[in-house]
């Protein structure tokens, strides 16, 4: 669990949302960092093989995932789509959270 802006967040909450989208693959990474004295969350998620080159579809996909994440987490994360296979492959239990905050 991590605490961001006073809200308790479990990575499984994020995973549950991401897994609903067949356009996304299974690998994701949650990065929490301090930007201009604010704690911000960036979620990098791999695309699945179902890639479309329709720019508006990719944009609305990003918006739709972000909206669902916001409804679930009560904070608005930044979502970044990345190529399949581009996130580090984890051996054993996957490390899904990278906390780079300056305390």
């Amino acid at each position: 669990m991590l605490i961001l802006k006073g809200v308790n967040i479990f990575p499984t909450q994020i995973e549950k949302i991401l897994m609903q989208f067949h356009e996304l693959g299974n690998n994701y990474l949650i990065i929490v960092e301090t930007i201009n004295n604010n704690d911000e969350m960036l979620i990098e998620v791999e695309l699945s093989d179902l890639f479309t080159d329709d720019y508006s579809v990719l944009q609305s996909l990003t918006k739709s995932i972000t909206r669902q994440l916001k409804d679930e987490l009560l904070i608005t994360p930044r979502l970044k789509l990345v190529s399949k296979g581009s996130l580090p492959v984890q051996e054993g239990k996957a490390v899904r959270v990278k906390d780079l905050r300056k305390f």
Partner: peptide, 27 residues
């Protein structure tokens, strides 16, 4: 956040296979 590269190439099917094999999202 991202870009889309669109190309006409000498062998589109082969390019598609090659890119997929190398973990590049293509269609």
């Amino acid at each position: 956040e991202f870009g889309i590269l669109r190309m006409i190439v000498s062998d589109a099917q082969e390019a598609y296979r090659l890119l997929n094999e190398n973990n590049v999202n293509a269609n």
